[in-house]
């Protein structure tokens, strides 16, 4: 078996490897190189060193976008995970219609970000109309709107992961805790949560990376209005690259920095939560 695997290794991995290189490694390397260049089209670039990186900080946009992203991510990650965990606890109890509810809660996740953004835009605007204002009139509305939208979209998905985790908690452990006189709160904190730690790592990682690289929903909901106050990092990079002539390299430099920031945060988080996981 091992021998056959080796023999077919090339046939099975080369196509994927080729596609991966073409769609990921090559653009990434090009992007890295282009962040040190001045260019209008990606095939025609001149090397200018670190200038793009300095220019990225000449205007407050990038810093503002970073701060807004962090502000958004902290609240969204907490609310999504807490709510989806509660939902999972609720739907692992023996109540009628759990399957139906699980499906319903999961469904928003099947809708694309752009469409979701527009749907929520009209829903929120419909309410704000009565108060004589709109979603783009005040940055607060955009901020809250984004949080609500992300919660609505991602809770279902995270809930499924938590349900799988909770169902895998051995019943004998829970029974043992029960016999020892643990209250249900104690069972939750001391038994269930440590046992679902792998799910928590995964969910935190997913929400964290999704919140940081959020683009579609941001673009469709507010497009950064008013005055770029609700623009997140990905949108700011896109606007810099495509929206401004002569700023292609700056956009690229921002993208490289964005990658580094997100990679660092995500890896730190993974390492931290992994260390809390227990063996079953």
């Amino acid at each position: 078996m091992q021998k056959t695997l080796k023999k077919y290794f090339v046939i099975f991995t080369v196509p994927t490897l080729f596609a991966f290189c073409l769609a990921f490694i090559v653009p990434f390397a090009m992007g890295l190189y282009l962040s040190f260049c001045k260019f209008t089209t990606v095939t025609d670039a001149t090397f200018i060193g670190l200038k793009n990186y300095f220019r990225a900080f000449e205007e407050p946009d990038f810093i503002n976008a970073t701060l807004f992203t962090v502000k958004f991510a902290v609240i969204a990650i907490l609310s999504i995970n807490v709510l989806s965990f509660l939902m999972a606890l609720l739907l692992t109890r023996k109540i009628k219609g759990t399957n139906l509810f699980r499906t319903v809660f999961f469904m928003p996740n099947l809708i694309g970000g752009i469409i979701l953004g527009y749907i929520w835009q009209s829903m929120i605007n419909a309410i704000l109309y009565d108060y004589g204002t709109t979603l783009v009139a005040n940055a607060k509305f955009g901020y809250l709107g984004l949080i609500v939208l992300m919660n609505w979209q991602m809770i279902g998905y995270m809930m499924i992961i938590y349900i799988a985790g909770l169902q895998n908690v051995p019943t004998d452990l829970i029974e043992a805790a029960h016999i020892d006189g643990a209250t249900s709160w104690q069972t939750l904190i001391k038994v269930k949560i440590p046992m679902v730690m792998p799910s928590i790592s995964i969910c935190l990682f997913l929400t964290l990376s999704n919140c940081f690289k959020l683009f579609d929903q941001n673009l469709a909901l507010t497009a950064g209005a008013p005055s770029k106050k609700t623009a997140m990092m990905a949108l700011d990079i896109y606007n810099t690259f495509y929206g401004r002539s002569g700023f292609e390299g700056v956009g690229q430099a921002k993208a490289v920095m964005f990658f580094l920031v997100v990679a660092t945060i995500a890896l730190t988080q993974l390492r931290f939560t992994r260390s809390k996981e227990v063996e079953q």
Partner: peptide, 17 residues
């Protein structure tokens, strides 16, 4: 630039609001 126009437009929006 387009950026100037967009910034101006956004300022008008905030003024109108």
């Amino acid at each position: 630039s387009q950026q100037f126009k967009d910034d101006f437009g956004q300022a008008l929006l905030e003024y109108a609001a």
